[in-house]
């Protein structure tokens, strides 16, 4: 019963959001079609912006995997990884995530491309989806107003990343194991 409710929430969020937005737009008399096309134009731009990062990460990680190095590492760490229901693919995701959003997305794409129905894909999806690139955000936001001493902002960001990684592992295990 509980599982079914959760499933409906997961499925329902997206259409509900779209429904509400469309209804409000209708009430407010927004030119829906023109506005939509205007926004959609940016979609290609966004994808084009991600593309260089995707290709860099996907190709380099594919090479690493093909060379057999990833497997060797996985064998070495197997007991630890098994304990947390992880695979070797996840490790780079955890470390790259706070550094670069596009790179993390690329790593995730590499995992998904390999085996889309695997547990690792779901875990990586949750990890990447629930994150923000800490160092990028700090650099851009503080840089824009010329602040050089971050005080505890950096610590909060890093701790939040660690919490997010741990939570992803726990929640994913609850949902998909």
């Amino acid at each position: 019963m509980f599982a079914i409710i959760l499933k409906y929430i997961s499925i329902g969020v997206l259409p509900l959001l779209i429904f509400v937005i469309m209804t409000v737009a209708l009430v407010k008399k927004v030119p829906v079609y023109e506005t939509f096309t205007e926004g959609a134009k940016d979609g290609l731009k966004v994808s084009a912006n991600i593309f260089p990062y995707l290709i860099a990460i996907i190709v380099s990680i594919s090479m690493l995997r093909a060379s057999g190095a990833l497997e060797a590492l996985g064998l070495a760490l197997k007991p630890l990884l098994d304990y947390f229901n992880l695979t070797t693919d996840i490790i780079p995701v955890i470390f790259v995530r706070p550094l670069s959003g596009s790179a993390a997305l690329g790593l995730f794409a590499e995992i998904a491309k390999n085996d889309v129905t695997s547990y690792a894909t779901k875990l990586a999806a949750i990890m990447v989806g629930s994150s923000e690139t800490t160092f990028y955000v700090l650099a851009v936001y503080f840089g824009s107003v010329g602040i050089s001493k971050y005080r505890y902002a950096l610590w909060v960001g890093i701790l939040a990343d660690i919490i997010a990684a741990i939570m992803s592992i726990i929640v994913c295990a609850i949902f998909f194991l």
Partner: peptide, 14 residues
């Protein structure tokens, strides 16, 4: 991406 950004543009405008 394009579809979602289109919808979100509507959300912004409305």
């Amino acid at each position: 991406m394009a579809f979602w950004l289109g919808i979100m543009k509507i959300a912004e405008k409305s």
